[in-house]
Design a protein around this nucleic acid. Structure first.
Lengths: 223, 223
DNA sequence: CTGTGAAGTGACAAATCTGTTATCCGGCTT
DNA sequence: AAGCCGGATAACAGATTTGTCACTTCACAG
């Protein structure tokens, strides 16, 4: 049975949601503060976290950031007053799964919750996150990179290149190798796409993450 | 220890490769005909199949097609004379992992083999193929769809939409639902992107795969 | 210090992707 | 039969992605 964590400071709403989800057949844990919510979220695996943006202690954004840094595969549904709708894009960018504005129609929220949980269920069997040491994860679905809590949007090529470098982190990858594996080009010398794309990656990362090995190729720093 | 299957009719070359791979520490199975190779490939799990394009009985393309239809996650390295380099794009499109032209430098082939095997090793821990009933698979890395042996290139959006439909195959998905889940649009009515993208998918698939449910939404045929 | 070749960078053009709009089609209702 | 409505489709424009090229910067050898 799916397990939902509700983080909401307003008692009425918290109790309402708890009852509603429970009635729908979910197992529910509720938290009234950001700190308590974070503790619960980190302590156990939840299928969905319903998180209010406006909390007494920590800001919802903060909770979201910390939570996703620790569990990049967590699904978080952000709940927020219409006045804060402007933050919508921001939190979705940060990795939230969905955003619902308060006040909401019960059925509407319920539908959203069901949707997000079902989703996770079917995808969860094939993990979409490739763990790659320290704080780095590749998110196959979003095609982006989570590196120490920061979510970096990558293009298709950038992603493939990054994936390859990550798999061999610490080892040197020759241009030839990268051309063959990332671009599928077997022979052709006489292009500097690799250089260009390494440059583009560096621009999106801490620029000292990818090291140049003169006359050979590139290497991603081991950690 | 990784297991390689070599399918090559010319005895000298077959023995040479067998010895080379064995010396490199791999377990090797060799087959001299397409039929024998196919049988071996379907009978056991290999980490890499090295396949000659020019075989006495079946064409290499044929072997590749049948093999990938049955095991879409198989890694196949195509070996072929320079004269056939024109087929390169075609076989890579069909899902081959790599292409090496004959005659080749031993070390070169060895490097390619190592690369493809290592690759598979690291990705294999997180399966990149989502099985979805009958002959359909979603390949998260290539962002494409394998449907009864045919590999269909999809754009990012098309892929996400297709993934959603596949997850719910047989059930109807409302436009709203698709908008929310695939596009992340919560409210906005007044767009027909969904219709447009369903159209684009239909153009790439057997056009009767996606069914219209009037006044409701779309449904992917159950099988 | 200087010359040479390797690597980095900015600008650009082509290709692709995305979403909108306008129009067309086909079935249903009246 | 005519009108209407939901859905299909073609064409388009803007955005993004991709790879190339020319030029700059940098590291090392002499």
């Amino acid at each position: 049975m799916a397990h939902i964590l509700v983080v909401e400071d307003e008692p009425t709403l918290r109790i309402l949601m708890t009852r509603m989800f429970r009635d729908a057949g979910y197992q529910v844990t509720a938290a009234a503060t950001g700190a308590a919510g974070l503790q619960a979220a980190l302590g156990a695996q939840h299928d969905l976290v319903v998180l209010d943006l406006m909390l007494p202690d920590l800001s919802g954004e903060e909770v979201l950031r910390v939570l996703l840094a620790a569990r990049p595969d967590a699904r978080v549904l952000i709940l927020s007053s219409v006045a804060e709708v402007g933050r919508r894009v921001a939190v979705l960018d940060r990795g939230a799964a969905d955003f619902v504005a308060k006040p909401f129609v019960n059925g509407d929220l319920m539908a959203r919750v069901r949707l997000r949980i079902r989703d996770q269920g079917s995808f969860a069997t094939n993990p979409t996150h490739t763990e790659v040491g320290d704080g780095a994860h590749l998110d196959l679905h979003r095609r982006d990179l989570v590196i120490n809590g920061q979510r970096v949007q990558l293009s298709h090529r950038e992603f493939t290149l990054m994936a390859h470098l990550l798999h061999r982190r610490g080892e040197v990858c020759t241009r030839q190798e990268l051309l063959a594996d990332v671009w599928g080009i077997a022979f052709d010398p006489g292009t500097n796409v690799v250089d260009v794309y390494v440059g583009r990656l560096r621009a999106k990362l801490a620029s000292d993450t990818i090291e140049t090995v003169r006359n050979v190729g590139y290497r991603l720093l081991a950690s």
